[in-house]
Design a protein around this nucleic acid. Sequence first.
DNA 1: CGATATAAAGATATAAAGGTCTTTTATTAT
DNA 2: ATAATAAAAGACCTTTATATCTTTATATCG
Lengths: 143, 143
Amino acid sequence: MISKTCGYAIRGMVLLSLEQNQEKKIGIQEIAEELSVPQHFMGKILQDLAKRGLIGSVKGPHGGFYCNNRTAGLQLIDVIEAVDGLGILKKCFLGRDECSASNPCPMHDDFDGCRTAIFKTFASKTISDLVASVNLGESVLMG
Amino acid sequence: MISKTCGYAIRGMVLLSLEQNQEKKIGIQEIAEELSVPQHFMGKILQDLAKRGLIGSVKGPHGGFYCNNRTAGLQLIDVIEAVDGLGILKKCFLGRDECSASNPCPMHDDFDGCRTAIFKTFASKTISDLVASVNLGESVLMG
DNA sequence: CGATATAAAGATATAAAGGTCTTTTATTAT
DNA sequence: ATAATAAAAGACCTTTATATCTTTATATCG
Ligand code: FES
Ligand code: FES
């Protein structure tokens, strides 16, 4: 499915959105502790997201990472594209070089149905949808 | 999703079933060429399947791999369990340590629906189902 | 300015997946 | 028996994912 890196990225962005009261920035150490993920690894991931403009960051005292105006509205597919690339959604289930409906492997039709369902879920859900779920107490980011 | 190794395993078993006219055994070299997969790597995979009893093998001249009486009836989930283990179907989408409905991440419900659909497909499809698809010309193993 | 805090960047480490090559063992045919 | 054949086994190698550590650049505050 998606990489661990990408899962960390999504959870990080949701955490930033949760704690965002405008001016509040969150340091990588706090983020890593809240999510219990490796600090320096998470740092690299968030730095990459910041470089691509999916979140914001400032250095120095009282600096850290924060949601910019794009963050909350991002669809999961946007994050997946930025981190893993969209190729992960186009791989043949049986490991062939190509996956295509015109020259399918014997699992293609069944698999493609499931894959399309997942893709639709990715494309429709936004970061703020996940934030809402956590805020309602329906789900958690860590554990 | 499933590993490349596991995809190779399934394709190899389907190929064996396709060419099986009882006494015919197929050498690893021929299998690797037909599927255009790395020969020695495929060798290891099939050797492992043979050791676990999912296929048969004999050494020496005119030896090779062949379907035993279990092969055709195996469900894909059996192959996946043997090669990758069932853990791959129980991982949290967002990379948390645990995936559970009682303590879910914000993607759990949506993801679990898709995962269950895939699981049902795996559990129901057998090697002979895939063989039938190829025999009907509906699909291919290589390309 | 100078000290400090913090992200950014880069080098390195570890583990797993994927793949190659060589040697050994078992089987068959001569 | 002996030679040939092909799987089995084992020792590597490469790539990718994951993770850690160190250094540098930048922003803030006194
Ligand atoms: S060709 Fe195999 S999944 Fe599409
Ligand atoms: S808890 Fe994340 S997918 Fe189940």
